[in-house]
């Protein structure tokens, strides 16, 4: 009746923990020691914002409003990303905490959005995306204060490659807006 109760559960628990730990070490811990993860590059330095700079505050607003739920910052060496700019490397994200890679592209990738846009464009776009690009489903951020909007724009404009890497990847043309639609002949 009273068999030693733990006799079965203890090895079981140890086994479960060992298997778990193996996977965790391999996929979470080891990468820390990869060379590519240990050093920032020139792109990362651009994104190493001083606390309380407009870009820093803008990034906080980006997080607060959940822009990352619709936008990635993640360029892959695939056809689907070929016009977005230089392919992302681990070094780019060195200072990125929390990491803003994102998971869904409901909107376009923003890894290097600063090189194809202007502050004025963002201003109009954030107020009401549908004024700039009719049919867009991005929310209007007209409830942000003037200051918040400017900070956010400073952040978005900082998302560009350093001159040393800007040459790689296809150049992006500036985004055509409604006023420019005429010259694209559509």
């Amino acid at each position: 009746m009273s068999q030693p109760r733990e006799s079965i559960t203890t090895p079981f628990i140890i086994g479960a923990i060992v298997l778990f730990t193996t996977g965790a070490i391999a996929t979470v811990l080891l990468p820390f020691f990869e060379d590519t993860m240990k050093r920032p590059n020139a792109n990362a330095e651009i994104r190493n914002y001083a606390a309380d700079s407009p870009e820093y505050r803008g990034r906080q607003i980006y997080i607060r409003e959940g822009c990352h739920t619709c936008h990635t910052q993640f360029v892959r060496p695939t056809k689907g990303d070929m016009n977005l700019g230089p392919v992302s490397v681990p070094q780019d994200y060195y200072y990125d905490s929390p990491v803003m890679q994102g998971t869904v592209r409901t909107g376009a990738d923003l890894m290097w959005v600063g090189r194809r846009t202007s502050p004025a464009w963002h201003k109009a776009h954030l107020k009401n995306p549908r004024d700039v690009l009719p049919g867009s489903i991005m929310p209007s951020y007209n409830y942000l204060t003037e200051q918040e909007t400017d900070d956010l724009i400073a952040y978005l404009m900082s998302l560009k490659p350093a001159p040393s890497t800007a040459g790689t990847g296809a150049p992006s043309a500036p985004i055509p807006t409604r006023e420019r639609e005429g010259d694209t002949n559509r």
Binding site: K79, D81, M82, N83, A108, D109, L133, G135, I175, P176
Partner: peptide, 21 residues
Amino acid sequence: LQGFAWAEGKQYGIQFVEVMQ
């Protein structure tokens, strides 16, 4: 649809909105 449209180069701006439509 999205995956193949992006592979055709419709990755931002007006073209992106066309895909969305």
